[in-house]
Design a protein around this nucleic acid. Sequence first.
DNA 1: CCGCAATCTTTACGCATGTAAAAAACGGGA
DNA 2: TCCCGTTTTTTACATGCGTAAAGATTGCGG
Lengths: 344, 344
Amino acid sequence: MKPKINTMEELSEAIGVSRPTLSRYFQSPDSVRGKTSEKIRQGLERVEYVPNFFATRMNRKTTGIIGVIIPYLNDLFFTKLLMAIETAAMEAGYTVITQCSHSDPSIEARAAETLMSMSVDGALVAPLGDQSDPEVQRRLGSRLPFMLVDSRPTTMPDVDFVGTDHKQSTGLITEYLCRVGRPPVFLAMPRVNFNAVERENAYIAKLTELGHKPEVIGIDPIDSRWHFEAHGEAVLDQYFSHGAYLDRSILCVNDRVAIGALRAASRHGLVPGRMAKGGLRIAGHDDYPLCPFTTPALTTVAQNVEAIGKASVSRLVEMIRGENSANESQVQLFDGVLKLRESA
Amino acid sequence: MKPKINTMEELSEAIGVSRPTLSRYFQSPDSVRGKTSEKIRQGLERVEYVPNFFATRMNRKTTGIIGVIIPYLNDLFFTKLLMAIETAAMEAGYTVITQCSHSDPSIEARAAETLMSMSVDGALVAPLGDQSDPEVQRRLGSRLPFMLVDSRPTTMPDVDFVGTDHKQSTGLITEYLCRVGRPPVFLAMPRVNFNAVERENAYIAKLTELGHKPEVIGIDPIDSRWHFEAHGEAVLDQYFSHGAYLDRSILCVNDRVAIGALRAASRHGLVPGRMAKGGLRIAGHDDYPLCPFTTPALTTVAQNVEAIGKASVSRLVEMIRGENSANESQVQLFDGVLKLRESA
DNA sequence: CCGCAATCTTTACGCATGTAAAAAACGGGA
DNA sequence: TCCCGTTTTTTACATGCGTAAAGATTGCGG
């Protein structure tokens, strides 16, 4: 067992190099002479030492930490986003501290406090939607570089944002559905965030533009916040039972709802699909990782999650470093891409 | 805009209470007289102040942080586990810092360094499997209270562990499948962690016990580490194409593989199920959240994730506090529960 | 071997807070 | 109003490391 060493002071005695030199070494091994750094490296092999994070960070003007707040973890969309963010941050030399708000505004507020008290260099927030306390975000923004990802509250128009252009993405699939069959109805969900509303509006706009009458179902909460699949299944099950929408195109607000919708269809012996007779089609939004494996495989629009993650980090780093137009707010929207599979 | 205050010193001038008193207040508002705490509370309303996390934590002997290392985020099993852990930790008054190892041993090692340097009070690690560097875990264990969750390396027999009793859970579903049809074959996966092996062995043991001949398929990696669905689909697709296993029970090592298996079945026009003619049955393990929504709904064994999360945190807290038999290692295994749905 | 520049050591202070000890102020009861 | 115990203030030191300045070493070119 290697001897355990707790402070740089002790370490400096142990390997015969002064503490300031060690300090420089840990910040950048190249900042000391080759011979010295070799001596230190060998010394470190013989003992058990990790610099104290808190002490280190407390004294630097910068902490090298990016804080991330995510509303919900049990959703592969967010985990994909998170992984993209972590990867990008890692490459940029930052450590990521993630806090999950568990879709609870008070936890979100606490998470923001934690990030602020940790003096993170910047924060990336995927907000809860209308549930989020705008005051919390205002405090964050007044204290540190801060931007929103994924979902964009109407109350924060002048904050940096990176996300999907839902008008484009939803328009794209709506148009496709109109082209191949009867105009779709829109299966919505309880309003857990602004994307839901944006997609709904985009659907309505596109249908109106094409001269059709929009039809939105499933807005009433069936006690299923974030239980998207259950929501989709319950809503459609009810309609199908009454013989409604059996031969229509159904555009779901997202893939998880669509997975529920597929389930409802199969329970009623229906097989949605572009090739299928009967005219039932089901489509989603997001390109949830499981889409290729549903039966039938789900047609959807992919969000460019990788790009969103990457872009948000690089923009945040710009803001942190005060580069470019760091002080004028900026909105980046990425296009969705049609994923034609079997269900529509 | 409230005036921004950065240190307790400034705060103490701003609201006319001495710094040590403020310090006591922030640690526990009840430790100061009611009148004083009221004065402080009102003062805090008028200014913008958050105590510096690093400075606070650096001086306390305890940091109030539990570190968690998770191998992979794009898997709802881990996110469920993580949420259970976070909830339990929150209730116990701890802050959780999560690090994801992105299924990369070197990132896992770095994550461990981060946790150690942060002087977390304890660490909870869901290891990568044989990929994990045992040295990393030994260092963690020698520095702080530390335990393993979910997957248990054979190389660390004397470390605390909380997880599922795979012998029981896999035995349970194996037995069920044997009871309702022909003895199942086992659809395995590349060995990303020890659970895969444990389940496979449990399957073999049970089948042998019942006097049948075990049959394991899908061990050869089809270049699909962690692409479980794709793996399941690819393997079965191949077998089905050769007319093999069309009428058998197939026990998949986990639900994600099973979802791929269902897909393969549907592509071949097969409908697995306990009611279905033909004898094809597909079952999984874990009770992945989407199981009720697949077509057909997936029969599986549920892991008690909630319990695992809760138990691991409460055991870790025991170790941190030095309570009970904190120094003798302890293994807690939870039973799986059969979830009979449609697919088997 | 000398001299100069680069590097290291020594010394000292700073960061934001915890915490202990002594002195001062406070509050309630008689 | 006085007294005594409780609470607060004052003062001072501690945490582990960043960092600056001055003096001591080192290494390299000549």
